[in-house]
Design a protein around this nucleic acid. Structure first.
Lengths: 226, 226
DNA sequence: CGCGGATTTGACCTACGTCAACACCCGTGG
DNA sequence: CCACGGGTGTTGACGTAGGTCAAATCCGCG
């Protein structure tokens, strides 16, 4: 028993769309809560997605290896986000844990069948996917048009409001410089230089250990805008 | 009467998911076939999408104006593609005709209601949206990692198999250099230079008037790969 | 203390952007 | 028939943001 009733993301995640005790019971029996450790991959680019599921805790990356060998991170999955590729098509990207995470997985075929017979769930997944698409397109603008410093500033702002942060304006950055670079379409040195430039301007400070303090949110927003 | 039965894209478009005569009749009464001329916008970025619909004939762009004023094309809509943003959220991008086109539009609210009561349609839209998302992420890799010439080569290949082309390897390019630049995250001069470089290498030839002949498909593919 | 990975810093180079001419294509009108 | 003009595309000269390569420096951990 993993207790959907006690699931910390039930309301926000896809399952929140299910209402009758009957439905909940069925999906409950389908799902299995698993722990994935940092670096572990749960879906491989190009393979049929064997599982789909919800992120309960942690952070995963969605990534594609480009022809020239560099990795591009095409999305992040935070708690309550849905991962995997339902309905037949092969996964367009890998899904890998960036930090130790716990996810609730369903066998893909069983999930497909369940979704087809429970319109509520299909509906909810559709809305979620439309939102993901909007976000992906917004990110395309960043990749295509923004300067390195604007990209970095955008990312830091993103993480500031999506990541566990202290009461002061401190964020614990979950990404290495390399991962930021993979996400922003830059190289590691450029990310590093951009961040130190922000520090030198007093916009952020770096108390060490992947901690970041946003000293001047407005300046950061201005830089992020381009 | 605009005759869904005679619609050239009915099978491929979203409506292909509807099966009973009853459903078809209902959606038929909801839809209206309209002509949009080159340059005309049917959905505005940031506004609530008043209409959604299917492209019947022509080509539209999905675009976002970035903070610094440059336009980024985040997608193209070919015949049988779905356009507009159902379900509440404001449109993340504008939709504008690149050439004179004809589309079949539905009032957004009525479509939303119809989709919620007809799971078949919701299902079909979900599959389509998942595909769009995969494509958008693939495009992110191009924008983030590929060289200018690889981007241009990728685009030419894309258009070669999606656009009406002669029995020889001739394509009628539907995009101006500016539009290609907006799509590829480049400036117009760079696009122009890349294309002439391809011509000089004998990979393509340009018989004038926006026509393009792919002389060496394999070379073009190699360049597109990076 | 010493090791290995992550991050920073520096010197240098190049792909692409910028700015400015110029050429081409086509319809209009003298 | 040719002159003209505006939109679209090409070419050239030049500058720079960010990539590359290499060397410190930092930091957590046995």
């Amino acid at each position: 028993m993993h207790g959907c009733a006690a699931c910390p993301v039930r309301i926000d995640a896809l399952c929140g769309a299910l209402e009758t005790p009957d439905e909940l019971e069925t999906i409950h029996r389908l799902g299995r809560r698993i722990e994935v450790s940092r670096g572990q991959t749960v879906v491989w680019e190009g393979d049929e997605s064997l599982v789909v599921g919800n992120v309960i805790e942690g952070l995963l990356k969605l990534s594609i290896i480009s022809a020239n060998g560099t990795e591009q991170i095409v999305g992040l999955a935070y708690p309550s986000d849905f991962i995997g590729r339902p309905f037949g098509a092969n996964a367009g990207h890998s899904v890998t844990a960036l930090v130790d995470s716990t996810i609730c997985v369903f066998p893909r075929r069983a999930f497909d069948a369940f979704a087809e017979t429970h319109p509520q769930l299909g509906q909810a997944l559709l809305r979620r996917t439309l939102d993901d698409l909007d976000r992906a397109r917004q990110w395309m603008v960043l990749l295509a048009r923004k300067s390195a410093s604007a990209r970095v500033a955008s990312l830091l702002l993103d993480m500031w409001d999506r990541c566990p942060s202290g009461p002061d304006r401190t964020v614990m950055l979950p990404l290495s410089r390399q991962q930021m670079a993979d996400l922003l379409g830059l190289v590691i040195e450029t990310v590093s230089r951009s961040i130190t430039a922000l520090r030198d301007k007093g916009v952020v400070s770096l108390p060490g250990g992947r901690r970041l303090v946003v000293e001047e949110p407005d300046s950061l927003k201005a830089i992020a805008a381009d």
